[in-house]
Design a protein around this nucleic acid. Structure first.
Length: 281
DNA sequence: AGAAGGACCTGCACGC
DNA sequence: TGCGTGCAGGTCCTTC
């Protein structure tokens, strides 16, 4: 479901609410059993650890956990929300929603109790324990480059000699991680590039325009708390507002906000792809 | 090796 | 009201 801005919003919201809390107990459903990490092992690894920090890498939420005396290996809890996943901080009295697959019972330093709940109707999300390297302290680093910080040269190099459409390349998490269907379409519109253009044939100038268009749209979306297209909400269950700013995504047949031409929808890389054939060449 | 296409799931909006 | 269809923000595995 969520892309970089939505994952960032959720991670920041969860961090503000649970950093410093200790995981007292864990309940896991038979969700996609076994998880990337088997459920019994995951529950055992999480129980008793203190949450140090929650942040985003690509579309992954990374939960740094302090090393308690009873454990020997430092680990991170990795949450990927898939299409419909939610990570919610709730008072324990709030009814547990359907499709809740992980329930972490937390206690704050002041003794307050709360739940960290992973809810995912469509079950495309993933949960895993990631060990931190004991000497280098290197943790989870994600599959690709971070779109907000990648240099101009590195960005251009990603697409060199690639024979697939630029939209498909943007969706490949091993190149850039964090970009999904909404922000691929929106960044290509802002850069004036048709999604079907072959990645390796785009000039350096056009790729740099794409880089800045992508960074602008991602930053703007983060400021607005992400896009709530169907059921995305932040850690408190509050929707984002960036969907109001979409220029092409899910606007099939509506007039382009720049030139008035109806927005087209095609299928590309198996995904609905929206663009203005007048503004994007 | 890189690229394309289907598989995995549930829910919702729509038309009949 | 009820059913079928198409669509949905993402990977991941297989095939070519």
């Amino acid at each position: 479901m969520p892309e970089l801005p939505e994952v960032e919003t959720v991670a920041n919201g969860v961090h503000e609410r649970v950093a410093g809390d200790t995981i007292e107990s864990v309940e896991l459903s038979s969700y996609r059993e076994p998880f990337k990490t088997p459920a019994i092992e995951m529950a055992d690894e999480l129980t008793g650890r203190q949450i140090r920090r929650v942040y985003r890498i690509g579309k992954h939420i990374v939960v740094d956990l302090a090393l308690p005396k009873a454990k020997t290996i430092e680990v991170q809890w990795i949450v990927h929300l898939g299409m419909t996943g939610r990570l919610l901080v709730s008072h324990p009295d709030v009814p547990v929603p359907p499709h809740t697959h992980a329930l972490l019972h937390l206690r704050s330093k002041s003794g307050a109790l709360r739940d960290l709940r992973f809810v995912d109707a469509r079950r495309f999300g993933r949960l895993a324990i990631h060990p931190v390297h004991p000497e280098t302290k290197a943790g989870f680093s994600g599959p690709g480059h971070e779109p907000l910080t990648i240099s101009e040269d590195d960005f251009v190099a990603l697409f060199r000699n690639r024979k697939l459409p630029i939209k498909a390349a943007l969706l490949n998490q091993k190149l850039l991680h964090g970009v999904g269907n909404i922000y691929a379409d929106e960044s290509l519109f802002r850069a004036g590039i048709q999604p079907t253009r072959i990645a390796g044939q785009l000039s350096r100038e056009r790729l740099l325009k794409l880089r800045s268009g992508l960074q602008d749209v991602l930053k703007h979306a983060i400021q607005l708390g992400g896009s709530s297209v169907s059921d995305y909400v932040d850690a408190d269950g509050v929707a984002g507002f960036f969907q109001l700013e979409h220029r092409v995504y899910l606007r099939t047949g509506e007039p382009c906000r720049v030139c008035g031409t109806p927005i087209e929808r095609i299928l590309l890389a198996g995904r609905g792809t929206h663009f203005c054939k007048q503004c994007q060449k």
